[in-house]
Amino acid sequence: MKVGFIGTGSMGSLLINTFLASGALDAYQITASNRTREKVVNLASLHPGLYPAKTNRETAERSNIVFLCIKPHEFKEVIEYIKPVVTPDQIIISITSPVQIRHLESALPCKITKIIPSITHLTGSGASLCIHGNRMNDEDKQRVEMLFSYISRPIRVEETYTRISSDFSSCGPAFVAFFLEQWVEAAVRKTGITSDEATRLASEMLLGTGKLLAEGAVTPSQLQERVAVPGGITAKALNLLDSSLAGVFDQLIQVTHAKYEKDLEALDAEFGAGEINRQQY
């Protein structure tokens, strides 16, 4: 299997590094290209055997599976450039949530899949969201999901729920990190505990809580009930959070969805896919 990466920025390089570290791929299986070729050359120096392509078209030509790790506004130009060398048996994978399967299937003759990764893959954990196109058969789907199983837990989702699913799996780590950062800073201000000590305690707590929830030992509600003794310290603090955060998560979802819809409208216009096309998928 030959795997190509068009775009080696933050997430592109993360995928390359984690696939290699996990043993999912060997360096000689990878071809990569980037707008700034120096970045790819540097990446190849870190992973001997990785081929630094001179162009995106060369990456597409050398690969069975091609990852598009680029920004939404770059898709149209990149697709038009690689289209002459793309074949029906290739699999193109977008990791960008606003780019729809219908956009790519209308523009390319190959098999299309969308996978939304997460920074948590650096630890071999977290969910990778899998949205497969109409041309993907069962073997194709299993092939892609097997690759991601080395670094994550692949979970199939409906494209309709890409944004809200990404809020949890992809954006969620930043949201939780922000919450912990604010909590740690308050602890330092109010008690004098060191930032390092508070961060270590909070991180271990988060890891343990994640395991409890992910392994199905308890639900979020059950966990709160077991920790919060009526009239106790935890219960009092939970009441404060409940009143202070009322409506915050509704607003958060509104913000992420508004940005997603704005990007989607721009992509629809760019790919010439209007509302009628949207309803066909």
Rank of each mutant, 00 (worst) to 15 (best):
S10R: 05
T113H: 03
I193Q: 06
R226C: 07
N64H: 12
T162C: 14
L108G: 02
I253Y: 14
E261V: 09
L68V: 01
G274E: 02
S106G: 10
V99H: 03
N56P: 06
D268T: 12
I65F: 08
T59S: 07
P109Q: 04
S221H: 09
S118K: 01
G247N: 06
P109G: 09
S170K: 06
A198G: 10
G192K: 07
R62N: 01
V157W: 01
R156P: 12
R278F: 12
S244A: 14
L245V: 08
I116P: 11
F249G: 03
A186C: 14
Q142T: 15
Q142R: 15
A246V: 10
S125R: 08
A127D: 04
D268H: 09
W183G: 15
I92P: 05
P220I: 14
N137H: 10
N42A: 01
Q182D: 09
M1G: 11
L180K: 06
C110E: 02
E185R: 05
K190N: 14
S169P: 13
K54D: 15
V255K: 08
H132M: 15
F179C: 13
A127M: 05
S10P: 11
D140A: 04
K54I: 15
E61H: 02
D263H: 15
I16K: 10
E61Y: 07
F178I: 12
S128C: 07
V188F: 02
T36H: 06
D268C: 13
A177Y: 03
R163H: 14
C69S: 00
F178M: 14
R189A: 12
V144E: 08
C130P: 15
T234E: 09
S243N: 12
K111T: 11
L180P: 11
T59Q: 04
R278Y: 15
L108S: 07
A127Y: 01
G133M: 01
I119A: 06
H73M: 04
D268Q: 02
E275Q: 15
Q142N: 14
K83I: 04
S244L: 12
Y281I: 14
I70T: 01
L43G: 02
K2V: 09
L46K: 11
A174L: 02
S125K: 04
G23H: 00
A258D: 10
Q254V: 08
I151G: 03
A32W: 01
C171F: 02
K76L: 12
P220T: 13
E204N: 11
T87I: 03
L252C: 12
I101C: 00
V3S: 06
T199E: 09
P48A: 04
S125L: 05
A21E: 11
K76Q: 12
A187S: 13
V157N: 05
R200D: 11
V184N: 05
A273F: 03
A237V: 11
C110D: 10
A187K: 00
P98E: 05
E38G: 04
T209Y: 00
P98Y: 01
Q224E: 07
P84Q: 06
L20R: 01
R163K: 14
S170W: 02
M11N: 00
S13G: 01
R102E: 10
G232F: 04
G12N: 00
I193F: 07
S63R: 03
S97H: 13
H103I: 11
L245D: 06
V3C: 10
E80F: 07
R62S: 06
D26I: 12
R62D: 05
L213M: 03
L267M: 09
Q29L: 02
F249L: 14
S128D: 13
F271C: 04
